[in-house]
Design a protein around this nucleic acid. Structure first.
Lengths: 111, 111
DNA sequence: CATATAATTCAACCATCATTGAACTATTAT
DNA sequence: ATAATAGTTCAATGATGGTTGAATTATATG
């Protein structure tokens, strides 16, 4: 298992911008937590799911832990603190209050 | 100029997840509006800027219009309504209130 | 008309990365 | 020990898309 990185906003958007990965994340948000169910509802192969889940896991937004009774199964869950961090980064950038009017230096010098 | 598309959330994240494109969008948010200034501050070639700007423009988040006095220049600005739409889409998906606890069907059947 | 400037378009190249199938690891069950 | 199950890792493939340089369009100027 690789080390956790602290992604920038652009990194986050790239990680989350992959359609299948966003669908997987949505499933986990909705309470689905093991690979078998993730796979059958999206009809993705196990190794592909494993790949996308490792990306989500390494980004930090998804936590993974093995089942107590049967360690073959893995349970996924959202790391709420990381999700809040993503929300903060996004909303800080896409804040409508940040939008500035066009600066006068733009274009040909009006004379 | 191509037609405007109405991107899904995954599309938006992919469009905005390109580092140079996000930097360009940031410049426009901060009031920079013509290619010359966008290029010199990020040291990107004109054709590359044109490419990224066309992606932003076709997505609808950036508006482009030619200068009244010298139509060779193009002025870019943010479409606030579209930006609000992006914010709405994002915050609807990444709403912490949506997070469900793990469903009991997950993993091996506890017996 | 000819030249210069701002920007776009085009073709090619290249890197990234999602996808696939097979091999492999780990755990559980018989 | 053997087989079965859940999941990962590996190598290879293929598609997407960012980047580059040259050619092209559009507008403005002498």
């Amino acid at each position: 298992m690789e080390q956790k990185i602290n992604p920038s906003l652009a990194n986050w958007l790239k990680i989350l911008g992959e359609p299948n990965r966003l669908l997987l994340l949505n499933q986990i948000i909705e309470g689905i937590c093991c690979n078998c169910e993730l796979g059958e509802s999206l009809s993705l192969s196990p190794n592909l799911i494993s790949h996308h889940m490792s990306v989500l896991n390494e980004s930090g937004i998804v936590k993974a832990e093995r089942d107590k009774d049967d360690a073959r199964w893995i349970h996924y869950s959202i790391d709420i603190d990381v999700m809040k961090e993503v929300n903060t980064l996004f909303n800080a950038f896409f804040d409508e209050g940040r939008i500035q009017p066009n600066k006068s230096e733009c274009g040909p010098r009006k004379s």
